[in-house]
C-alpha cells in the first residue's frame, strides 16, 4: 500500500470510530439538552445494547435484522424504565450528584450484564463482519462503512423525528423551558422518560454497529464513552451536530496519532486535544452555553 492509501484508510477508520463516539455523544447530549442531566453511563448503555443483541442473535439464533430491531425496542423500554425507577428521583439534586449516580449505575450495569449472560466476552456475526467493499482501487471494510452510513441514516431519522412529529416538538419545548412546557400541558416527566428511552435506543444501535469494528467486546467497552465525552466537549456540549462533529474529530485524531506517533500515545494525544480545546475555546465548536440571567 502506498502512503495515500494508508492515509485514506486511516481516514475511513477514524471516521467510523468517530461516528461511534459521535453517536454515544449524541445519546448523552440528547439527555443533557432535555433534562440537564449528564449521563456518564451512556457508554454502559451501549454495552448493554450489545449484550442484548448478542443474546438474541448469537444466543437465540435470531436473524440479524430482527434481533437488531428487538434490541432497540428492548433498550428503549430499558431506558424508559431506568428513568422512571431511578433517574427521576434524582431531579433537584446538584448536577454533581447526578454525575456520581450515573457513574454508579454504569458500574452496576458493567457487573450485571456479564453475570446475566454468563459470559466475559461477546461476539456475534453481522452481515458486515469480515466483508469488504471495493471502491475504486481501495478495499474498504464493510463494517466501518456500515457504521458511517448507519450514523447518517440515524441522524436523519432523529432530525425528522424532532422537527416533524408532535412528540418531537414537545420534547424540544420541554428542553427549552420545562416550566413553560409544563404549563402548556406537555407531560414533562413522561417526555423525560421518553428521551431516556430514545437515548438508550441510540446506544443500542451504536452497540450493534460497534460489533463488526471491535470484533470482540467485553463489559469494559463502555469506557470508550470517555472519548465520546471528549468529542461532545470539543463539539460544544449541548449541541447535537457538535456531538457528531466532535466525535469524528476525536476518532480521526486517535487513528492518525496511533499511526504517526510512537505506539501507546494515542490516548495522551486525544486527551491533550480535549484539554487544548477546553483552554482555547471552552464553549466548543458549536457553543450552547449562556450566562445566567440575574
Amino acid at each position: 500500500m502506498d502512503s495515500v492509501q494508508i492515509y485514506i484508510s486511516l481516514f475511513i477508520n477514524g471516521l467510523a470510530l468517530g461516528c461511534i463516539y459521535g453517536l454515544i455523544a449524541l445519546g448523552f447530549v440528547l439527555i443533557y439538552k432535555a433534562t440537564e442531566m449528564v449521563n456518564f453511563a451512556q457508554g454502559d448503555l451501549m454495552m448493554v445494547g450489545a449484550f442484548i443483541a448478542f443474546g438474541l442473535i448469537a444466543g437465540f439464533g435470531l436473524n440479524f435484522w430482527l434481533g437488531f430491531l428487538l434490541t432497540v425496542v428492548f433498550m428503549i423500554i430499558f431506558g424508559f424504565l431506568l428513568d422512571v425507577v431511578v433517574i427521576r428521583r434524582l431531579i433537584g439534586q446538584p448536577q454533581f450528584s447526578i454525575v456520581m449516580a450515573t457513574i454508579g449505575i454504569g458500574y452496576v450495569l458493567r457487573f450485571v450484564m456479564p453475570y446475566a449472560f454468563n459470559v466475559e466476552q461477546i461476539a456475534f456475526l453481522t452481515p458486515f463482519t469480515g466483508k469488504a467493499v471495493q471502491v475504486a482501487a481501495m478495499t474498504l471494510d464493510a463494517g466501518k462503512l456500515a457504521a458511517v452510513v448507519g450514523t447518517l441514516v440515524l441522524c436523519a431519522g432523529l432530525y425528522m423525528f424532532f422537527q416533524r412529529t408532535r412528540i418531537g416538538v414537545a420534547m424540544q419545548a420541554a428542553s427549552q423551558n420545562q416550566l413553560a412546557a409544563y404549563y402548556m400541558g406537555i407531560p414533562v416527566a413522561l417526555i423525560f422518560s421518553l428521551i431516556w428511552g430514545i437515548s438508550a435506543g441510540v446506544a443500542a444501535i451504536t452497540g450493534v454497529m460497534m460489533m463488526p469494528i471491535a470484533n470482540v467486546m467485553d463489559p469494559s467497552i463502555g469506557f470508550i464513552a470517555i472519548k465520546a465525552f471528549a468529542g461532545a466537549v470539543v463539539g460544544g456540549f449541548g449541541s447535537i451536530p457538535g456531538a457528531l462533529v466532535g466525535g469524528i474529530i476525536i476518532g480521526l485524531v486517535e487513528q492518525f496519532s496511533d499511526y504517526l506517533l510512537a505506539p501507546g500515545y494515542k490516548d495522551i494525544m486525544v486527551f491533550s486535544v480535549l484539554l487544548a480545546v477546553m483552554v482555547v475555546r471552552p464553549e466548543g465548536i458549536f457553543s450552547q452555553m449562556g450566562r445566567k440571567k440575574v
Binding site: 458500574y107 458493567r110 457487573f111 453475570y115
Partner: peptide
C-alpha cells in the same frame, strides 16, 4: 456462588450505594 465470585462485584456494590445514598440520604 457465581454472583459473589463475578468480577466487578465490588465496583457494582459501590455503584449501587452511590445511587442509594444520593437518592435517600444526600
Amino acid at each position: 456462588v457465581r454472583f459473589v465470585n463475578s468480577p466487578g462485584l465490588e465496583a457494582a456494590i459501590f455503584g449501587a450505594l452511590l445511587v442509594v445514598f444520593i437518592i435517600f440520604e444526600p
